[in-house]
Amino acid sequence: MVAYHVFDLNPVASVLLNLSLLGVICWSLLKIEKNYSNGHKFIILGLLALLGIVGRILMSPIPNVQPVTVIVLLAGIRMGAKESIFLASIIALFSNLILGNGVWTIYQAAAWSIIGCSGALFSNKLDTSMKLILFAGASGVLFNWFVSLSILHSVGFDMLMPYLIVGIPYDLLHVVGNITFMIWLSNPLTEIMSRKIENNLNFEVSEYEPKPF
């Protein structure tokens, strides 16, 4: 049997391919949102979760560069702590179904939740774009170090420090990635997240009186 799909894409080509796919998905999702969403929180949360999952999976060829940290952080700031916890857990779970599930999933979900919650906590103070950018950068280091704690399930405490030190270039990637995503995503996501319900989505069953026979 000949497997026609088996050929080697070089890493750059596969990253570019994934990026263009991600671009198309983001663009179309945001368009759809603009046309159809009436600002209902469930629709917005679903959309953000989808963006996070797709973004993380498609960016996975580049370690630590993904939009999820910025999405949960902005969700915490603009929507609230509960919303960011929901997004953090759903995105961690569903993206790890493809990227690999394990004990780290719970650490990733917890780390993103903490980032979202601290965003919610400091939402009043994060009022300039520069503060947002700095906070996004710091979240990258916070996330990586928190998730690194999961290695303590398999190695002793004295291995933690060497592990963290080895990871510092990866922390740098996460920081630079977060800053870039914050600059690019802050405005469009803020616009979506802070949209109020404009016209009523009628979930109520309209009462009607059955005609008598």
Binding site: L30, L173, V176, T180
Partner: peptide, 24 residues
């Protein structure tokens, strides 16, 4: 959506690409 597209967008993207390329 990208009405505030500006210098920051370009600079951050360039820095990110440089960091990724020189990461190894």
């Amino acid at each position: 959506m990208l009405e505030n597209f500006g210098r920051r967008h370009v600079i951050s993207a360039v820095i990110l690409v440089v960091v990724i390329v020189s990461f190894p």
